Amino acid sequence: MFTGIVEELGTIAEVTDQGDAVRLTVEASTVLEGTGLGDSISVNGCCLTVSELGEGRWTADLMQETLDRTSLRGVVPGDRVNLERAVTVDKRLGGHIVQGHVDGVGEVIARSPSEHWDVVEISLPAHLARYLVDKGSITVDGVSLTVVEARDSSFTVSLIPETLARTTLGSRRVGDLVNLEADVIAKHVEKLLGAYSSVTTPFSENDEED
């Protein structure tokens, strides 16, 4: 589990195509502290498992499923990526509960800079629209953000200077693809309510009739 609070910007060092998989090597420093083989690191919001560790770098294996469902299929050496280690129980939950399981890919469709923040509009896959509400939570490329306005096919977020400076969202431009993860609590509530509404209580002869 993650919180959506990016710890550092890493750099893609190597991308090795293995046909139906890719080996991704990332240069980093902060997220390597206390990290061992088999640990989880979020890369642009996608939970990856550390398969190799080196001096100032680490490697993960990306399956075809990950390549099909995330924007990581398009990364090349030199790209910057948002990194976060899995949260531990003694840490504050500064963002919101993030699983690192990408629900869909959106596209930056508008960007409106201002003196102190940027408002960014991102396209929203149809199957995710029901999970977004104004002032609710959304994860964009691994960054925990508050939805400013939830629309039918897009949503807007407001990026403060800290987010612009410390994450890749500061350099994302119109046309760029971003990984999206909806609030897992909303998904659980939907499933529970769906199961509840599908249960019918049979009429009992002891029930009173109006």
Rank of each mutant, 00 (worst) to 15 (best):
E27Q: 13
I97D: 00
E208L: 07
I5A: 03
I12K: 01
H116I: 03
K91V: 06
A182I: 02
E7M: 07
E190M: 12
H127S: 10
H188L: 12
Y131K: 01
D183K: 09
V50R: 10
N44K: 02
I109Y: 03
L164T: 04
Y131W: 12
E162H: 15
V143P: 03
A195T: 03
G95Y: 02
G136A: 10
A195K: 12
L180I: 08
K91Q: 15
V174G: 06
T167A: 10
N82G: 09
S71I: 05
V157R: 07
W117D: 13
P161L: 01
G38P: 04
T70E: 11
G36Q: 14
G19D: 03
A13T: 05
V15K: 08
Y196H: 05
L132M: 09
I185S: 07
R130D: 05
L128K: 08
T167H: 07
S158L: 10
A110H: 10
V174N: 09
A129W: 04
K91G: 00
V89F: 14
D210P: 15
I97S: 01
L9W: 04
G142P: 11
G78H: 08
E14Q: 12
E190D: 13
K191R: 15
V148P: 00
D141A: 14
N179M: 14
N82A: 13
L37S: 11
G100Q: 05
K135D: 11
N206E: 15
G104A: 05
L72F: 09
F203R: 10
Y131T: 00
S154F: 12
E162C: 00
W58Y: 15
G104M: 04
L180A: 07
E208C: 00
V43N: 08
E205F: 09
I160T: 05
T88V: 11
V184M: 15
D134M: 04
R80C: 05
